[in-house]
Computed example of a mutant assay.
Amino acid sequence: MKKTVIGLLCFLIGAVLVSFAAGSAAAPEPSPFAPEDVRLFRDKCGSCHGWKKAVDYFPGKTAEKRSAVIERMRAKKPGFITDAESARIKKLLSGDNLKAVGAAVETLDRKTGAEPSPSKSSTAKQKTSKGKAKDSADKKATEAAAFAPEDIRLFRDKCGSCHGWKKAVEYFPGKTAEKRSAVIERMRAKNPGFITDAESARIKKLLSGEDLKAVGAAVEEMEKKESEKKSEGEREDAGAAAAAGFTGGGGAPKAMKVSHGAAMFVSFLLLGIYVVATGVKRRYKTAAASIKFDWKKHVFRGKLYVVITLAGFGGGLLIYALDGFGAPGPHFIAGAAVASLYLIGGIAGLRLARGKAPAGMKHLHFAATISATIIYLFSIASGVSLAIKS
Rank of each mutant, 00 (worst) to 15 (best):
G251E: 03
M256D: 12
H365W: 07
A242T: 06
A238I: 01
P30F: 07
R156T: 06
D151S: 01
V275Q: 06
K120F: 07
A387L: 15
S122L: 07
I89M: 14
E29D: 10
E228R: 09
D294R: 07
R72F: 05
G50R: 08
R153K: 13
L377D: 08
L207N: 04
C162Q: 07
I6N: 12
L352Y: 10
A368V: 08
A54T: 13
M256A: 10
G209I: 00
G315T: 03
A54Y: 05
K125E: 09
K130Q: 12
A22M: 13
E223I: 03
R72P: 13
G312A: 07
A243E: 15
P30E: 15
A262E: 12
K132G: 04
R88N: 07
F293H: 09
A104I: 03
D197V: 02
F246Q: 11
W295D: 07
C10S: 14
Y376Q: 11
S371M: 11
A334S: 11
V266L: 14
A133I: 01
K254R: 12
P118V: 00
T142N: 11
T309V: 13
P35L: 00
I370S: 03
I319H: 09
V38Y: 02
S136W: 00
A372D: 06
D211Y: 01
A381L: 05
S86G: 14
K213S: 12
S31R: 09
M361F: 04
W295Y: 12
L269E: 03
V215D: 01
V307K: 01
D56A: 13
L317A: 11
V276G: 01
I370G: 02
K132F: 09
A243S: 12
Y320R: 00
T112R: 15
K204H: 04
G79P: 10
A289M: 07
F246W: 08
A146Y: 07
T309A: 13
K91I: 02
A25I: 12
W165P: 00
A68G: 04
P149K: 01
L92M: 09
V16F: 09
S94L: 02
R235Y: 10
F378H: 06
A217L: 03
G193V: 05
L154K: 03
S161N: 08
G360E: 07
M222F: 10
D96I: 00
A148L: 05
G79Q: 08
Y274I: 03
W51P: 15
P78C: 00
L17E: 04
G314E: 12
A144K: 08
R72T: 12
A217Q: 14
G79Y: 08
A241H: 15
L318F: 13
F325A: 06
A34D: 13
F41D: 02
M361H: 04
L17C: 06
A133Q: 10
K297H: 13
A277G: 10
A381G: 15
A26Q: 13
F194Q: 06
M222E: 14
K134L: 07
D56V: 10
F265Y: 14
A287F: 14
E36S: 15
I70Q: 04
P253K: 01
P173H: 03
K179S: 09
L40K: 10
T373G: 11
P78D: 05
A22C: 11
K190T: 02
L317V: 14
F313Q: 06
K130I: 08
K140M: 05
G250F: 01
E199R: 06
K2G: 15
A348R: 05
G102D: 04
